[in-house]
Design a protein around this nucleic acid. Structure first.
Lengths: 133, 133
DNA sequence: TATAGGGCTTCCAGTCACTGGAAGCTCAAG
DNA sequence: CTTGAGCTTCCAGTGACTGGAAGCCCTATA
């Protein structure tokens, strides 16, 4: 398979696949003409990567997950640890975003949004504390 | 004021303040010795930036918010638009993270996390669909 | 057989918002 | 006069791609 077909079938753009090769996540063979020659296992790996990335795992996590996947002697606890840590990072991010969302939505509600210059959003950002809540 | 004091009082590290000068967000004067000489208004601007960044606004948004802040003829609608767009971007991000969280927490729950290699997390990533839900 | 096109290759640069580090100048204290 | 902290600039690296240029390869059609 050439890169185009693999890209289509895995849903990962060619540029990204080349990048993944660069950083050693996949190691396709080469045809005589210099083109990358992907086997089914490479496609499978890339699809794995696509799903792991879609769950927000970092590239380093993906690398570790992939090597656990290929390691018959793995312990599921190792996988679970990675996933749990990632899950808690996600929770932290969600909490942080929800805090932003909270403040911001209050400010947006308080702003008239008309032609006058008066604006509680700017007031808040400028450090004026006698403001909403 | 030297950069150190401004950093302390604004909560923004010196490196970042220099970076903000680089990209034209602040324009401190210079003392005879070449040191940056910040006025109160610079400090005020930096604190503004710190709060805007803490709400997740991009640097470009911050630039626009700052210039609206300094523009007496602004219309609050302009500010509100920026804030609303940012708010909806935050909502999108939260939704995306919650979807990840959902899938991931199911997988984590399904994984024994023991010494055996069997792992529903890896099974899911590998594209095996006869899995949790 | 010439050529046009699409796909493939590599390499370099840019994104975003910093952050680390090196080399070197300035200043205040002892 | 030395020490050390604080300041300066400049360069490089982060994460995970993404865009673009220059050029080779392959197939199909005129």
């Amino acid at each position: 398979m050439n890169i185009g077909e693999v890209a289509e079938r895995s849903g990962i753009p060619p540029k990204t696949i080349r990048y993944y090769e660069d950083i050693g996540l996949v190691r396709p063979q080469r045809s005589g003409n210099g083109y990358r020659a992907f086997r089914e296992t490479d496609l499978h790996k890339l699809a794995f990567l696509g799903r792991a990335r879609a769950l927000g795992f970092s590239i380093e996590d993906c690398r570790n997950l992939l090597s656990l996947y290929e390691d018959e002697t793995r312990e599921s606890a190792q996988v679970k640890t990675i996933a749990e840590e990632h899950l808690s990072a996600i929770d932290d991010k969600i909490a942080q975003l929800q805090e932003m969302r909270e403040t911001l939505s209050h400010l947006v509600k308080a702003c008239h949004g008309d032609h006058r210059p008066d604006c509680p959003i700017l007031k808040d950002l400028s450090g004026d504390l006698k403001n909403i809540r």
